[in-house]
Design a protein around this nucleic acid. Structure first.
Lengths: 126, 126
DNA sequence: CTTGACCTTGACGTTGATGTCAAGGTCTAT
DNA sequence: ATAGACCTTGACATCAACGTCAAGGTCAAG
């Protein structure tokens, strides 16, 4: 399939696909006229990339996952490098959550001093 | 005082101060040679801006607070517009926290499937 | 008079993942 | 042969809050 079809099927723009290629995440055969040609495996790669981006991973983070899939594994996460990224990301997310909880408390405190009773419930609490 | 002194006392760069001025957050008298001249009130404004930025506010968010101080209030947050920003920010922070908690759970779930026992404790839990 | 610490405006660089033109080649159908 | 749907590479635009040069003016001290 050509880039337009892959884009439609993967739910991304052609621009994004070319960008992924430029970043070395995906590759494409070229047909005689210079058009990019993709197979089903590429759809799988792009889907993996998208789901990782969706949970806050960067394209760089996605590299090991793509490599893992290309290496024949049925899951992009089942390789040591991918697991390492998972763990690093988890730590990063935890850091961000802690930072946000701190900020939330600070802002709520400020708001309370000028408007007691204005603060609602804390995030995550029902 | 001139821009360098204000920068040192406020703990910001002169570039930042010029940027705040360009964004209409602070203003400066000019002495005969064209140098910016600031007073103590400006230090107060810059401090307010910095503390707001520190908790994740944008410069745009800081506008009502600066206006509030300029209007003579002793607290930048004690004006209706500021309170509104506080509440909006609180809601934004809560949204982000919820998003991150969801992501954290998704990533942890993925990691668990390929590496049971790899996931540590959840953020915020001890 | 000259160093050096200050100040001025202007303008490009940073970061990530694209969006959006520009200018043009390819291919199918009518 | 011509419309129009597809493809190509290249390159600038976006968002925020500055960092960092460039090129030059100002001023006090030695």
């Amino acid at each position: 399939m050509r880039i337009g079809e892959l884009a439609r099927r993967a739910g991304v723009s052609t621009r994004a696909l070319r960008y992924y290629e430029q970043q070395g995440l995906i590759t494409a055969r070229r047909s005689a006229n210079g058009y990019r040609e993709y197979g089903e495996a590429d759809l799988r790669l792009v889907s993996e990339i998208r789901s990782l981006l969706a949970v806050g991973f960067t394209l760089d983070d996605a590299r090991p996952f793509v490599a893992c899939l290309r290496a024949g594994h049925d899951s992009g996460g089942s390789c040591p490098d991918s697991v390492a990224v998972y763990q690093r990301k988890l730590a990063e997310i935890d850091d961000e959550i802690r930072t946000l909880l701190t900020r939330r408390a600070e802002v709520a405190a400020q708001l309370t001093t000028v408007c007691p009773g204005c603060v609602l419930r804390k995030a995550g609490e029902s």
